Amino acid sequence: MCGRYATTADPGRLAVELDAIDETGAASRDAFVNYNVAPTNQVLTVVDRRDHADACGDRERRIRAMRWGLIPVWTKAAEPGVPVKGKPLFNARADRAATAPAFRDAVKYRRCLVPMDGWYEWVVEPALAPGTKGKVTKQPYYMAAADGSRLYMAGLWSVWRDRAAPESGSLLSCTIVTTDALGEPARIHNRMPLPLPREHWDAWLDPDHPAPASLLAAPAAEIIAGIVPRPVPVLVNSVRNKGPELLARVEEREEAEQLPLL
Score class of each variant (00 low, 15 high):
residue 134 G to F: 04
residue 126 P to H: 14
residue 72 P to G: 10
residue 113 L to Y: 02
residue 122 W to H: 12
residue 68 W to T: 03
residue 117 D to T: 08
residue 113 L to G: 00
residue 121 E to S: 09
residue 100 A to M: 13
residue 81 G to Q: 09
residue 62 R to K: 04
residue 96 R to P: 03
residue 67 R to V: 13
residue 62 R to F: 05
residue 77 A to V: 09
residue 122 W to G: 02
residue 69 G to R: 06
residue 128 L to K: 15
residue 78 A to G: 08
residue 143 M to A: 07
residue 112 C to Y: 02
residue 140 P to Y: 07
residue 134 G to T: 03
residue 85 K to P: 08
residue 95 D to P: 00
residue 102 A to Q: 10
residue 88 P to I: 10
residue 97 A to G: 01
residue 127 A to W: 05
residue 102 A to V: 09
residue 68 W to Q: 07
residue 102 A to N: 13
residue 107 V to T: 09
residue 107 V to A: 06
residue 131 G to R: 03
residue 74 W to F: 11
residue 122 W to P: 00
residue 76 K to A: 08
residue 129 A to N: 13
residue 104 R to Q: 04
residue 76 K to D: 14
residue 90 F to P: 11
residue 112 C to M: 11
residue 65 A to M: 02
residue 117 D to A: 03
residue 68 W to D: 11
residue 63 I to H: 02
residue 63 I to P: 01
residue 99 T to H: 09
residue 81 G to D: 07
residue 129 A to E: 15
residue 91 N to Q: 05
residue 108 K to F: 02
residue 105 D to P: 00
residue 82 V to G: 06
residue 130 P to D: 12
residue 92 A to S: 09
residue 131 G to M: 00
residue 126 P to C: 11
residue 119 W to F: 11
residue 129 A to T: 14
residue 143 M to D: 08
residue 126 P to D: 12
residue 89 L to C: 10
residue 113 L to F: 02
residue 109 Y to P: 00
residue 109 Y to C: 04
residue 80 P to M: 02
residue 111 R to A: 07
residue 71 I to E: 03
residue 67 R to D: 06
residue 78 A to M: 05
residue 120 Y to I: 10
residue 120 Y to W: 08
residue 89 L to V: 08
residue 73 V to C: 01
residue 144 A to I: 05
residue 141 Y to H: 10
residue 144 A to S: 15
residue 147 D to A: 06
residue 103 F to R: 10
residue 150 R to E: 04
residue 72 P to V: 12
residue 130 P to K: 12
residue 69 G to W: 11
residue 83 P to H: 03
residue 78 A to E: 13
residue 106 A to K: 05
residue 113 L to A: 04
residue 90 F to R: 05
